[in-house]
Design a binder for these strands. Structure first.
Lengths: 207, 207
DNA sequence: CTTAACTTGTGAATGAATTCACAAGCCGCT
DNA sequence: AGCGGCTTGTGAATTCATTCACAAGTTAAG
């Protein structure tokens, strides 16, 4: 399959969110134009994005809302339950553990890990907090699909190395660090300081 | 000034982080090649990124670490203290309020806002929680540069409208919603569900 | 002073993503 | 059945971003 750009996947995600909105309101069809307006893009962009995966619309009419939503869920791999663990039970880890949006979309958080003995054994919004020292054994046993990493920057790479060795193939990284991993491991980094600096730049360099 | 791509600004942020590392370790100079290796890019990319803003290196030698760090701080607008408020004192708002990385880089969190009376009047990691109903008055008075928005998706747009009317020009959005605002308002959205869906897609569509 | 080993800065070339523009298909009306 | 109004799907054109490749500048050593 042709390589799909990251930006395309993000837009598909956005389209799906809008479609779910429309679905709830009982609308049957939607045009690329309407979808584009909601997503801050153009109708040509919407059609091009979808065209990578097939042709789901009807000329003259638009797209069937439930059908397109289903197709997008399929494309994005949201048909199955993904098994997720969180590493780092600090403030951000805790905030993510309780975030309802995850469960809602099929991301099932199995456990959290921390190396602080005060936290180990307790529970975070109903999710057990386990000791990081048993990480390898647990990963082996629970076989999570995705790891969310919310540890301090200087601990992140060492944990990635351990996770990669244990066979993890997808990481959502909140540590403010550039991570190294083999190319078959998918990594997405969310760096809040970087986003703020982007705003700082925008405020500083306005024409 | 020529328009600078978002991706470029993000890389500049990353370079600065590495430079601060090198600065601490007392290294005097660094080449574009070393900077590239750390940032997972190429030396040509590093030099091109910097060339938009001037020529800061010495041929044959590389870049002076403290000088380049200073230039980047200047370019990114990190010379001044930015005044920040957080709207939404939920789990994510609280996690951000305590995040040391912000203060460290000159982002000064003045206050948090919430419409839950149980939270108003209390303090979040030393930051006062105020009532959202006085938002306009407070924005007028405190003149924050940046607003961090951590409210549920269905409340976000209404707050953006209020903020825009009050003259806010930069928003860091954590609500899972596409926000509408005039083009002179800079908005960065961090959408964790979208990132997870990106991983789901990567896991589903390998080669 | 000359040479060798580096490294920058930057036009030119390439590659990737977005936008244009239009033929082809669908619906409803007469 | 034929026409008018819409909307899709997609090559072609364009715009934007990255990579190449090399002249020009710097240092160190003989």
């Amino acid at each position: 399959m042709k390589r799909i750009a990251d930006s395309t996947v993000r837009r598909l995600s956005a389209y799906l969110r809008f479609l779910e909105d429309f679905e709830q309101r009982g609308l049957a069809t939607i045009s690329s134009e309407e979808l584009a307006k909601r997503g801050g893009t153009t109708s040509a962009q919407v059609r091009k994005d979808l065209s990578f995966f097939g042709s789901f619309g009807k000329r003259g009419l638009g797209y069937s809302v439930p059908e397109l939503a289903g197709r997008l869920r399929e494309i994005l791999g949201l048909g199955k339950e993904w098994r997720v663990v969180i590493i780092g039970a600090g403030k951000i880890g805790a905030a993510l553990a309780q975030y309802r949006g995850f469960r809602q979309r099929g991301f099932n958080i199995l456990a959290a890990y921390d190396n602080n003995p005060d936290k180990v054994g307790r529970s975070l919004e109903g999710i057990p907090v386990r000791d990081t020292s048993h990480l390898e054994r647990d990963l082996q046993r629970d076989k999570p699909d995705i790891v969310v990493l919310t540890v301090p920057g200087d601990e992140a790479q060492a944990l990635v190395d351990r996770m990669v060795k244990a066979g993890i193939k997808a990481i959502l990284n909140f540590a403010p660090t550039q991570l190294q991993a083999p190319p078959d491991v998918a990594i997405k980094t969310v760096n809040m300081a970087m986003e703020l600096e982007g705003l700082s730049f925008a405020l500083t360099n306005r024409d």
